[in-house]
Amino acid sequence: MSTTAVRTGTPPTARERLGDFGWGTVPYLMVIPGLAFVLGVLGYAVAGGFWLSLHETDMFLMKTYVGLQNYIAVFNDPRFQASLVRTIVFVIASIALGIAMSMMFALTLYHVGFGKRFFRGMSLVPYFVSGIAAAVMFRFVFTTSGGFVNYVLQQLGLHTPSWLGDPYLAFMVSVLANCWFMVPFATLILLGGLQTVDKEIYDAATIDGAGPVQTFFKITLPMIKPMMGVSLIWVSYISFSTFDIILALTAGGPQRATEVVSMYMYQLAFLQLDFGQGAVLMVVLLLFNTVLSLFYIYFFVLADKRTEKGN
């Protein structure tokens, strides 16, 4: 090598070197700064949360190791049990309603013949409204005197209930507000799925004698399975970690009817200053969400692979 380099007289300079596409340390140096933030803050927070959940914090912020005591206390706490059940009901109701609405909106936006761009752009607006603002608006739509819903009911001469004063109705309104906030994104993801389906497949299905309903269940749904998975992850993630919407809408009330795990966590840690038990709830939220997400990823990654093979 060296002899040839001497022979040619022009050994390659550092600048001329290959290596832009080589391995080396360059990519690591590019990746590390961002990772430092992510791991430094979020990673630390997760690790710190686990650590906190094993410790008791006294009024002077001194911490003592107490093992699983916080966990035992939390899991025996009827208020936690109730909030956990409530969260699960909230999540299931939100997923069912949210996915149904997203699918309906996506199909509508797919088939609408005019102003496609306009309606699509409009449908995403709630995604850009903060949870707090969404909650304030929803409170105002459902408020007893001056709310839009009761205004309409009143015009129709119907009974005007106290939406946010009644435990069941308040729970329902909080599910609705949650859906208002999270449906738009899921809608566009599903719309994207619908658009990837080759129109010729629908033609083929029509020739094969499939009606619109059959086509939807036998062709459309299986083909957009990956996007369905993404929407499900999104919808469950938002519902599980719902916090600002409920805090500003009902603050967990009335009679704790909307006190979900995240609300109770805030209550424990920031109002009762019990960081240990608050951290236990964090662990619960984290585990639930991770398990659910992994389940969906498994579900739609598998679906993805099968479609790839099909192609």
């Binding site: 791991l39 630390y44 710190g48 949360g49 995240s262 805030y266 964090m282 984290l286 969400n289």
Partner: peptide
Amino acid sequence: LYLVPRIIPRVSLIVPLN
């Protein structure tokens, strides 16, 4: 490592972050 934080509910981190 970059992407996993996307599925961590942010509200759950407020206790240790505080």
